[in-house]
Design a protein around this nucleic acid. Sequence first.
DNA 1: ACTACGTCCTGCTTGC
DNA 2: TGCAAGCAGGACGTAG
Length: 283
Amino acid sequence: MPELPEVETVRQGLDEHVVGRRIESVEVLHPRAVRRHEAGPADFAARLRGRRVDGTRRRGKYLWLPVGEDALLAHLGMSGQFLLRPPDEPLSSHVRVRLTFDDGGPDLRFTDQRTFGHLLVAADGAELPAVIAHIAPDPLEAAFDASWFAGRLRSRRTGVKRALLDQSLISGVGNIYADEALWRTRLHFARATERLRPAEVAGLIAAVRDIFAEALNVGGTSFDSLYVNVNGESGYFDRSLNVYGREGEPCPRCGTPVRRDPFMNRSSYTCPVCQRRPRNGRW
DNA sequence: ACTACGTCCTGCTTGC
DNA sequence: TGCAAGCAGGACGTAG
């Protein structure tokens, strides 16, 4: 599932293979892929046709390609991929949007099995598209303000994992890296945010940063081959996950079997010894 | 104003 | 063997 490291890997791939090229044609093969482009698929295509891709940007799990004053904004959802393929190669059934370029080189295929991802053209967008103005800075960008984040945590009345997943507080963290960062910091996911000590918050931020950096070094994580980078290569950070998806396996720190708890209609993985459940926790 | 939850979607896995 | 339920989950809209 693409979280910040996977999205950043994709951004780097796009930066290398797409920037500087002029878009010749835009095909929307599945309207759901552009559902957040309010003016509809035809307008989406028209706004991109003939435009040159000027660069690549990312905040959290969103990435965008500035094209003049506009930007092609993308969210990969759970299974979104950008694939570069020879234009004469047949389209797979999960290709939702296809861009071709006037240089005749590889086309760009937004492919998304589970269709949670989406693309849109932001008309205001090169710097920071207004539609994602509510997305907080991610911990790898200069705009991230640790004291602002700590203050927001203190004023929240929720559990720490819910807060980590709230993209308006800190962006880029999903279910996998949330569990990994909490394990590393020895925090249970239900710890009340307002009762976290400053050192615990600082440790949590550091853990998220470290885990993101480590994942980036190996090109992001992958579980079911749904996620691949822009060239179609799978990431492999999953080999170094400590608790996520490892129910019953020994905690790498203390050997206690990892526990899985239902959480927000999904799962949370913890070490029941390293991450003690709080008395007055918030799920 | 803030928090929590249902919903979208497909395909693989599990269980009867 | 076949079918149905379970599971994966990011972000948004809405209910409370």
